[in-house]
């Protein structure tokens, strides 16, 4: 039993990180119809941004803030104006390809310009572990979970309780009627892009101490976040958290009790089942067919 709990607890902590990255996915999809295949690189770039700031002598918190500002400008504003805006009217596919291009360019840029090697990254949490009911939990696990949970809840509250948040949801549900209602659609979409960039910074801060900063770290994170978003429901903020945690826990439990070689596969079977039988995701709402 103790080992089962250990697996679940560790899985939840890892899953929470996937969830933060997945959250960005769902937001972008909802508000702008963008499937961002560079989402993993959106996490990788801030990690290296912070490393560079630390390299010039900044403490971690300052490095994080500076990177957040830079990310909001580059991954939020510039990404929207330069890539998303011109392509949004051409349907999903050209934009998917463009984000693939961003992903390739970002990875190779960091590899050629910084280093191909994995780099250590300081943890925002104190070292050490504590024990609860025979389960070992590190402060990093607990901290990650708390932060991820807080982010999902506050984002949820923001979307449901504030005027801006509701306007953003209106855009997501029906862009045309939102426009008729006098909502500044472009601005709302911009907010989403900026929030996505900030979430990526947080994900970078949480994941890099464990994952290590490396030019291709985004590949795994991006894929897992993508699966998490679909499993949880592409159009539900809470869904991302559920999806991320489900993947984290399933991988551990399957890896332990069934087959470590197929643990990635079981998350995928879950993913396929969800797609085939509940394509709107576990918590998602059914979308109307658009013609």
């Amino acid at each position: 039993m103790a080992e089962f709990l250990q697996l679940v607890v560790s899985g939840i902590a890892t899953g929470a990180i996937y969830a933060v990255a997945a959250l960005g996915f769902t937001l972008m999809w909802q508000a702008a119809g963008v499937i961002n295949f560079a989402q993993g690189e959106f996490v990788m770039l801030p990690a290296f941004g912070m490393l560079m700031c630390i390299g010039v002598g900044m403490p971690l918190w300052l490095a994080f803030l500076v990177t957040c500002v830079a990310a909001a400008l580059v991954l939020g504003y510039a990404f929207k104006r330069g890539i998303a805006d011109p392509l949004i009217h051409h349907g999903v596919i050209p934009l998917v390809i463009a984000t693939l291009g961003v992903s390739i360019a970002a990875k190779s840029f960091v590899r050629s310009g910084y280093s191909a090697m994995a780099q250590q990254f300081p943890s925002p949490f104190p070292e050490g572990v504590f024990h609860v009911a025979g389960v070992t939990v590190s402060f990093a696990d607990a901290g990650t979970l708390v932060i991820a949970g807080a982010i999902v809840l506050s984002l949820q509250a923001f979307l449901n309780r504030t005027v801006t948040g509701r306007a953003m949801q209106a855009v997501a549900q029906n862009t045309e009627s939102a426009r008729v209602l006098g909502i500044d659609v472009s601005r709302m979409v911009l907010y989403v892009f900026v929030i996505n960039a900030l979430l990526a910074c947080v994900a970078a801060l949480l994941i890099t101490p464990i994952y290590l900063a490396k030019f291709d770290m985004g590949e795994t994170i991006g894929t897992k976040a993508f699966f998490a978003a679909i499993i949880g429901g592409f159009n539900q903020t809470r869904g991302a958290l559920l999806g991320g945690v489900l993947i984290g826990v399933m991988e551990n439990v399957v890896g332990y009790y069934l087959s470590p070689a197929y643990k990635e596969g079981v998350a995928l079977v879950l993913f396929l089942l969800v797609i085939l039988f509940r394509p709107e995701g576990i918590l998602g709402r059914r979308e109307e067919r658009k013609v």
Binding site: L87, P94, I97, I104, A105, A106, S108, S112
Partner: peptide, 21 residues
């Protein structure tokens, strides 16, 4: 030799923006 993949990625983005079809 060092930057070709960066160039390739950027070219892809530019091409899509210019010629989405």
């Amino acid at each position: 030799q060092k930057w070709y993949l960066v160039a390739f990625g950027v070219a892809l983005v530019v091409l899509m923006v210019w010629l989405p079809g």
